[in-house]
């Protein structure tokens, strides 16, 4: 009897093994075939428009965080620059967004008339717009999320005071915007105010160098000319974006002027952190891209949920210097691992 049961069990297991084998191989093949599976659907669709070419790492970070936060709050944040080979301008994307009937737009603003007009058109179509980092002041945008240009100026001032001595005479500020760029004007104002309040013991001249419209790599050439001239050589260079920070720090190293010229950068990337550790860059303004991204989606969500939102959402700004760079790296690693 026991033998019969054992034999029956053997046959049963053989057949079960056969079935498992077939189903297993079948499902493996299905997976190999790469079906799309079930897609997750979202309640809202936002469009993210920014000039990625200008500060790719920074904007990527902002977008990724916005997207991540959006997914957690039933909103999908889309970015279109990879789709179109033609490289549409911001206004085109805004026009497309209207046609696409998206639920909201996160847009790096500017003060150009056509941008203001395009944003207004979007707002007129009933689509809320949140500008990020740079505002589009005269448009009907719903909110502006930024660290606050004035605060950035104050932070630049604090870093200058930290590294300047009585020998420091000249500060070179590399700007991007036009004369009417309210963001850069505010930075400049904040810088002046900071130096006036906290650095009145210093006697230095702030020179602004607008590099907008220059050909690629031209900024480095212009700065090199200034560095080579003893009369024009600045003691401190203020960079307003990541690209300038990297290229100027490299220039300083190339011409062996690390001890003579101090660089205060903008944004934190791995390369910039390395330069801070090597004392090539004295400090770099740290804008929390993750916070910026999440705040944009949060603002849009709030507007769509409640119908109103603050005109300005301002985030804190700080700097990474030689003193706190190690701590910053450690914190970032902890965030990544968690």
């Amino acid at each position: 009897m026991r033998k019969r049961i054992r034999r029956g069990a053997s046959i049963f297991f053989c057949l079960v093994f056969c079935a498992i084998l077939i189903l297993g191989v079948g499902s493996t093949q299905q997976n190999t075939a790469g079906g799309n599976g079930k897609l997750k659907t979202y309640g809202r669709h936002y469009l993210f428009i920014a000039d990625f070419k200008q500060d790719e790492n920074f904007w990527n970070k902002v977008y990724e965080e916005a997207k991540k936060y959006g997914e957690a709050t039933d909103s999908y944040v889309e970015e279109l620059s990879d789709i179109y080979d033609t490289g549409y301008a911001k206004n085109d994307y805004l026009a497309m967004a209207v046609a696409m009937k998206v639920d909201g737009i996160i847009c790096q603003g500017d003060e150009k008339a056509e941008t203001i007009k395009a944003v207004q058109k979007v707002v007129d179509a009933g689509i809320p717009v949140v500008t990020v980092l740079e505002d589009c002041t005269d448009s009907g945008r719903q909110s502006f999320v930024s660290v606050g240009s004035y605060n950035i100026g104050r932070e630049y001032a604090r870093q200058i005071i930290g590294i300047a001595t009585t020998e420091t005479k000249k500060v070179l500020m590399l700007t991007k915007g036009s004369a009417e760029d309210k963001g850069e004007n505010l930075i400049y104002a904040g810088l002046q105010e900071g130096l006036r309040q906290e650095g009145n013991h210093l006697n230095m001249e702030i020179e602004s160098l607008n590099t907008e419209g220059d050909a690629s790599f031209a900024v480095a050439e212009t700065v090199r000319t200034k560095l080579m001239s003893a009369n024009q050589r600045p003691d401190i260079i203020l960079c307003m974006d990541e690209q300038d920070t990297v290229s100027i720090s490299q220039l300083i190293v190339d011409y062996n002027m690390v001890d003579q010229v101090k660089v205060i950068g903008y944004y934190i990337s791995d390369l910039i952190l390395k330069e801070i550790q090597n004392d090539v860059v004295s400090a770099s303004i740290n804008i929390d891209a993750a916070k910026l991204g999440t705040s944009c989606v949060q603002t849009l969500n709030t507007y769509l949920d409640t119908g109103h939102v603050s005109d300005y959402v301002t985030l804190d700004v700080n700097s990474v210097t030689r003193k706190n760079v190690e701590e910053y790296i450690k914190n970032e690693q902890e965030k990544t691992t968690s």
Partner: peptide
């Protein structure tokens, strides 16, 4: 629908 797939989202657009 708004889905987390670029292709399908483009279809919607």
């Amino acid at each position: 629908d708004v889905v987390d797939d670029q292709n399908y989202l483009m279809e919607k657009n």
